[in-house]
């Protein structure tokens, strides 16, 4: 029974099996029980499967942190690089190898704190890249310190009385910095998350997707949010599908968050412009040599 199964409403594509896209020898993975990052990883691989991207043409770059470790489980070209710099590495890779689908998996700390500078400038350049930021509101791997996206009043190991700082709205930041595609989804809605990731992978410019993930062991436990099933059910009450305007007008979320594709525009992609420029310089240089 290797024939593709045709189900109602689905095209006759081969059914998605996550095991064909992961390094089986690495399993089970290192994530804590109930960690939302595993769900996000599945959604990414599902989107890759649906788009029919060859594993040899997929490059996954990730930084440091729980999210950073995910690249190691993907059976593709993967790079685990220095803290905060996956976007910088990926930019170089995407410029040199425009034939690759470059995907960056990064965490909230990796992307917005240590790598915040790289993040805004990658958005500004609008190079063809897909950046997935797995936001679990905490530095999970180092023991649960406050991160730039920790919501107000949340308790972490470094904010024992509750976080008093306002947090970043990563989608508003990416949009303001010039990203061509901005999306956000929660891990509870896997098919929707897959669709947002798929749209991001198809986008010709820089695509940023914020995945609202759960840290159950460190963040959920400290904040009395229950165990993993309770945390994942909570997501339903905290989201609101909406337009990008909302993000800009209320950058600091009180209770609910807009999700879905928040912005998508056709700004010129940097890679093409860069290669054209390089070509012009090169041909000008050749002309000079001939004359000399």
């Amino acid at each position: 029974m290797n024939d593709p199964i045709v189900l109602e409403g689905n095209a006759a594509v081969e059914e998605f099996d996550v095991r064909k896209y992961i390094r089986l020898q690495m399993m089970p993975h290192f994530l804590c029980p109930g960690c939302g990052h595993g769900i996000a990883l599945r959604a990414l691989l599902w989107a890759v499967h649906e788009l029919g991207i060859d594993k040899d043409r997929l490059a996954v770059v990730s930084g440091i942190g729980c999210a950073g470790r995910l690249s190691a489980y993907i059976d593709a070209n993967t790079f685990h690089v220095t803290h905060g710099r996956p976007l910088a590495f990926a930019s170089g890779l995407a410029l040199v190898r425009p034939d690759l689908h470059v995907v960056v998996i990064t965490g909230d700390g990796d992307c917005l704190a240590i790598g915040g500078n790289h993040f805004i400038h990658t958005c500004r350049r609008n190079l063809k890249l897909t950046c997935l930021m797995l936001n679990n509101e905490v530095y999970g791997m180092t023991g649960g310190q406050v991160s730039p996206t920790t919501s107000e009043t949340r308790i972490t190991t470094t904010t024992q009385l509750g976080n008093a700082e306002p947090h970043f709205d990563a989608c508003a930041l990416a949009a303001a910095a010039g990203a061509g595609f901005v999306g956000r989804e929660v891990t509870h809605h896997v098919p929707k998350l897959k669709d947002v990731m798929r749209a991001a992978l198809e986008h010709p410019g820089f695509a940023f997707v914020e995945v609202m993930s759960d840290c159950t062991e460190i963040f959920g436990r400290k904040n009395d949010m229950g165990s993993s099933p309770e945390m994942i059910l909570r997501q339903k009450s905290e989201i609101r599908p909406s337009a990008y305007r909302d993000t800009v007008e209320t950058p600091f979320r009180p209770n609910t968050l807009p999700t879905g594709v928040l912005m998508c525009n056709e700004r010129p992609e940097y890679g093409a412009a860069y290669r054209q420029y390089a070509q012009t310089v090169k041909s000008a240089g050749d002309g000079k040599q001939k004359r000399g």
């Binding site: 029974m1 089970p28 769900i39 993993s228």
Partner: peptide
Amino acid sequence: EWLCPDFAIRVHLQPAAA
């Protein structure tokens, strides 16, 4: 299957006739 963070569950659907 979708929500298992550890990829431990796989649901196989087969037409009854098969």
